[in-house]
Design a protein around this nucleic acid. Structure first.
Lengths: 136, 136
DNA sequence: CCTTGCCTTGACGTCGACGTGAACGCTTAC
DNA sequence: GTAAGCGTTCACGTCGACGTCAAGGCAAGG
């Protein structure tokens, strides 16, 4: 299979595949006329890369998985180095989620404060809602 | 006050201040010799920018706050446009946190699965822990 | 033969928020 | 007078993962 077909099957672009090759992931055989040629193993390897990319792993972090597959292991995460990346990424995710949660809390507080001030500021704004018996 | 002092008081760099100026935030007066001059209002404006940057707002998103302060309002978030940015950012944060949580769950699952396979694969690895009476 | 649609390499563009360095001027202190 | 420590503008570098031409080759169909 050539580069266009592989890209289509993996849901990515030829440019991305050439980029992966330039980074040392995903090597390719060549036909007589210089065209890159791939097989099903390359597809699996590429799918591994894409999955991790979707998880937010950067390319360098996919390298252990790729090398694991190249070494003949059945899955990219069958190697200690891959597990280490998983664990590091989990820690990063936890830290990031905590941080974002803290930011969210602070932004919420700012918004609440600013909204109160805004309604208090605008003269024609919402009136106090403490009426016991509505006019209508 | 000149650019160096303002940068120091706001905990940032002169380069950043010139960049903000190039983006149309944070205007500066000039002395006879061309030096930029700032006052306390500029400091407050800059602090507003820095706070929002720390929250993960990008520079364009700080613009409504800056313009609000420039319009003479006591706080940068005293204007509807600023509140809108707060709300949009909160929605983004919620979506991002949810997404990251989902990724975390998936990565955890992958890690758990891979760990089990790894221990089952290694011959000299951990033995089954179902012994009723330990040898020692 | 000509077009269409693959493929090749090479190289510059993108985005954001600056960092870094060059080459220079002003002020103040010694 | 000269060195230190401010300031000025201009302009290229950074990072990641590609996008987007440009210029050309190869294969197949009408």
């Amino acid at each position: 299979m050539r580069i266009g077909e592989l890209a289509a099957r993996a849901g990515t672009t030829t440019r991305a595949l050439r980029y992966y090759e330039s980074r040392g992931l995903l090597a390719a055989r060549r036909t007589d006329n210089g065209y890159r040629t791939y097989d099903e193993d390359d597809l699996r390897l590429l799918q591994q890369i894409r999955t991790l990319q979707d998880f937010g792993f950067d390319l360098e972090e996919t390298r252990p998985f790729v090398e694991c597959l190249r070494a003949g292991h059945p899955a990219g995460d069958s190697c200690p180095a891959s597990l280490a990346v998983y664990r590091r990424k989990l820690a990063e995710l936890d830290a990031l989620i905590d941080e974002l949660g803290a930011v969210r809390t602070r932004v919420r507080a700012e918004l609440a404060r600013a909204e109160v001030l805004a309604t208090a500021e605008v003269p024609g704004g919402p009136e106090p809602r403490c009426e016991l018996s509505p006019k209508t």
